[in-house]
Design a protein around this nucleic acid. Sequence first.
RNA 1: GGAGGGGUGGCAGAGCGGUCAAAUGCAACGGACUGUAAAUCCGUCGACUUCGGUCUACGAAAGUUCAAAUCUUUCCCCCUCCA
Length: 418
Amino acid sequence: MVQFKSQFFNLMLERGFYNQCTNEQGFDEYLYECEKTGTPAVGYLGSDPTGDSLHVGHLVPVMMMRWFQKCGHKPLMLVGGATARIGDPSGKDRLRPFLDDETIARNIAGLKKSYAKFLKFGDGKNESIIVDNWDWFKDVNYLGFLRDIGTYYSVNKMLTMDSVKSRLEREQPMSFLEFNYQLLQGYDFTVLYQKYGCRAQIAGADQWGNITSGTELGRRKHNVELFGFTSPIITDSAGKKMGKSEGNAVWINDEKLSSYDYYQYFRNIGDTEVEMCLKIFTDLSLDEIKKLAALKDKEINEAKKILAFEATKICRGEAEARQAQETAVKTFELGQTGGELPSLEVNLADGLSVLDAFVNIGFCTSKGEVRRLIKQGGVRINDTDICDENYRLSNADVKNGQIKLSLGKKKHGLLKSA
RNA sequence: GGAGGGGUGGCAGAGCGGUCAAAUGCAACGGACUGUAAAUCCGUCGACUUCGGUCUACGAAAGUUCAAAUCUUUCCCCCUCCA
């Protein structure tokens, strides 16, 4: 195995972030020089503001940037205000819907909020900043762009790009608009190079084509070597992308998902994913991870608890993580109720049907669903199975000022009498 | 512009006048087994319901029929080939 010199490169390799690099030796050398002289290297990670928060599925390259910064380098977080108006064809068969300005602005604010949990922002020499490619694209004119950038691209080459090729092979439609995406991304890279001296792009493996588009443009137009570095697309044992729970995204921003649910996502990770997740989603040292990964069978739950705690700590802060952990321990290990569970205030004077209770707290979307679940034995009140769908909750069910609702093994919530 | 093909539940994909709330697969959910894991097995999977039924749904609108996802007309959208 090649020995790397830079701290960053070694970290990436050891923790399983390293997938591919445009010039592994060159990039390593470059980073090493920067680290040795204390000059931050500048690298960027791009994302399109198609949603108002990141979720766990986006996190791998963000964690890479976190390490990048910890190694003394400067992360630029590019938001694609311009490219969101076009849509990235990578890995998709369908044109994305165009977003209006208001939505884009809101999404960008959401992304900033997400990023701020993982990176230090500010004016310091290795502090992170947000850049929006709308700033340089909004005034670009078509002929100028064709002349200045278009001349460096060969269509022959563009057609061989994976995302383009697969669309053509599967006979899926691809508009000219989308076809241009790689030019825009390539241009971003060179603009950031000119404005900030940015020579590195970090991204998920699916962005490879867009990265090389940028490095090539850099070489041809500015005669400079730019570097691209990608992370693997991580999947669980079933081969599915990480970051979904119960079919819903595991959001980074707290208004979209409670810290308790965030914690539970990692707590419920599969055995085979524990070591990988510890390496990628926590700051724990490799020595500690090694110890945790050696745990087997029941004991691996201890590793999962630490994983969940550490991951939540980074994203939601230590206090939130602690609270989430307490709630989880109380709920699952001690059979008590914890404060972080979803709760709802209700007036029990006239009684409340179980059906309404479960719909109102958001566990079910219809009364029919609750009925079905009662028949299947999945509904409990204060840890007692409910078999009667006409059951009405009353003050007699209140214990310590609350009623505990449970659905299945994992969903728990509280009703508090108002 | 011309000629064909198509739009069905979260997705994929059958159905082509009544027996269709719509086969099948995936996803999801509940149960059993467990370790808040995985795998496996069983069950569920439009809404409302006094559990008898009722209502809303197969791109949109209008129509034919006792009866339409299925037939007709118009419109919208997508794909393929030709120009």
